[in-house]
């Protein structure tokens, strides 16, 4: 049996699969249930400073190729997150990555300050959600100077928590944004956030199905784009990456890792293969490693020959 353990920014994960932010992930008990389903780690749903309402339904639609969502980051705010994190800590089964989101720099700072004092392992900065543009304008991750500014601000108050920036694929050159964040002190990256936004029209009604009209695209269709961007950012910065975007199988996960990812995030895969997709993918990674003489899965990170 291959060794699936990986170390990411000082934290040990039992296997490279982590729950991506936004899929389930609302409560501590859900985080634990996802770990029981085989996940090596958990990313929380994005946490706001204050209560934030999401969009009305319909918020998620799918086809066999893609999922489109405009859930709109609903969250009860920091106080609830503190409670849930404390509940998870009681019998913590796997590392916890806290995803945080803010409408401006001050909000990011306030949440990050609090997070620095909580039993979380890694701080993920969500500056790339494409579904709240009406409310907050272009995501920070789409402008290099903004991305760098938020990174610096968070780093200053994050204490000893590693800071991972969640990047947007909806940019001309993702490496420019990544390099700016690296200059700002980013410890790692999570990429990609959802693509788009896209638009799905119901022909009979001649109107979009999502209440927000447009939504971010995830699922199997976006995987090749995600793999390419992971590769580019890894090559450009050398910083450790949580590779996310359309991964549903062990082979997908291995591809992500060869491109440069240390951890592999999965979200939409919960829909495509069930909540135990984490165990399935970990087993598939293990089988492939055994067949290919890979003793430690960490050996394959960034080994793609280009």
């Amino acid at each position: 049996m291959a060794n699936l353990k990986v170390k990411y920014l000082g934290t040990a994960f039992a296997n490279p699969t982590v729950l991506a932010s936004g899929v389930t992930g609302v409560t501590a008990s859900t985080w634990k249930s996802v770990v029981r389903s085989g996940a090596g780690g958990i990313t929380t749903k994005s946490i706001w400073l204050n209560e934030h309402k999401g969009h009305p339904n319909p918020t998620i639609i799918t086809t066999e190729h893609w999922m489109m969502n405009a859930v709109g980051l609903p969250d009860a705010g920091l106080n609830k997150a503190v409670e849930e994190i404390a509940e998870y800590e009681k019998d913590k089964p796997a590392p916890l990555i806290a995803s945080i989101v803010g409408g401006n720099e001050e909000e990011f700072i306030k949440i990050a300050e609090k997070m620095a004092t909580l039993p979380i392992d890694i701080l993920e900065i969500n500056i790339s959600c494409p579904n709240v543009e009406d409310e907050f304008g272009l995501p920070f991750a789409c402008v290099a100077t903004d991305a760098k500014r938020i990174t610096q601000a968070v780093k200053k108050v994050a204490g000893n928590k590693p800071v991972v920036i969640k990047l947007s694929p909806n940019v001309t050159r993702i490496t420019e944004i990544a390099e700016a964040c690296a200059q700002g002190g980013a410890d790692g990256f999570c990429l990609i956030n959802t693509l788009g936004p896209g638009l799905y029209i119901n022909l009979e009604l001649r109107m979009p199905v999502l209440a927000n009209k447009v939504g971010g695209i995830s699922g199997p269709a976006i995987k090749p784009l995600a793999v390419k961007m992971v590769h580019d950012v890894y090559k450009a910065t050398g910083l450790p990456i949580i590779g996310t975007g359309g991964v549903t199988t062990g082979k997908d996960a291995l591809e992500m890792m060869m491109a440069g990812a240390t951890l592999v995030g999965m979200g939409s895969a919960v829909y495509y293969r069930g909540i135990d997709v984490f165990r399935k993918v970990a087993n598939e990674i293990s089988e492939w490693c055994d067949k290919n003489g890979v003793k430690n899965v960490e050996e394959i990170i960034g080994t793609v020959k280009m």
Binding site: A28, S29, G54, T59
Partner: peptide, 22 residues
């Protein structure tokens, strides 16, 4: 509930974290 098919995580039940829709 938001999605009805196990993705949004709104309908999970404590302390097992299982989803009401699934």
């Amino acid at each position: 509930m938001k999605c009805g098919f196990g993705v949004c995580g709104q309908c999970t039940l404590d302390p097992l974290g299982i989803r009401t829709c699934v």
